[in-house]
Amino acid sequence: MASDPHSQGHSHDHDAHAAISHDEAPGYYEIMETAVRELLMAKGFITANDIRHQIEVLDSRTPALGAAVVARAWTDPAFKSRLLADGRAGCEELGITFYDDTQLIVLENSESVHNLIVCTLCSCYPRPVLGLPPDWYKLKPYRARAVIEPRKVLAEFGTIIPDDVEVRVSDSTAVIRYLVLPRRPAGTEDWTEQDLAGLVTRDAMIGVIPVTLNDRGMK
């Protein structure tokens, strides 16, 4: 399908096809996707309804799912230890399925370690729990710089990590996806799980910002 992560980064800048890509007509990869899809349907491997259903699956995945996982981990220590031992099994406990058959490692931020996730090769992302990645996550500047100068990238998001805190970048390349478990902000000790979930943003679960009590997050 057009959303195949491995086609990202290849679908632009094709000089030989520039005339097409600047037109209203479909581009090279879009035509290829249509051709493959129609062939698979003609051969009876998939149906139009299978594709429609899969789009529904993708649309049902949003950062709110990841936020629910984080809030549960903050409020249930036994769940948190299961989640850190096996991220996928922890999410599956909450009913989040892994339709793409990836595994999940949950990376816990602490006083001494700040985690950041990236996919340098394409746009691997924990879609089952966060939905579609933001555009900047798929673009080359973030993908290259997150591994070369992560502290500068973080600073551009307004996140300054002290020198005595390790920055740990996880590059997802194969069958594993990563989700950052941010630190729970101080002053939320008596908050409900649901209110806590409302604080947790997509960017915090990628690791580019911490979870903070700002106006947007106040209950």
Binding site: E149, P150, R151, V167, S170, S172, T173
Partner: peptide, 22 residues
């Protein structure tokens, strides 16, 4: 270690990269 990956890495010497490799 980031310092093993990049000459002149400017962050903390404790910074690291983790990745899954077959």
């Amino acid at each position: 270690a980031m310092t093993d990956l990049w000459n002149g890495y400017t962050g903390s010497p404790n910074d690291e990269l983790q990745i899954e490799i077959i």
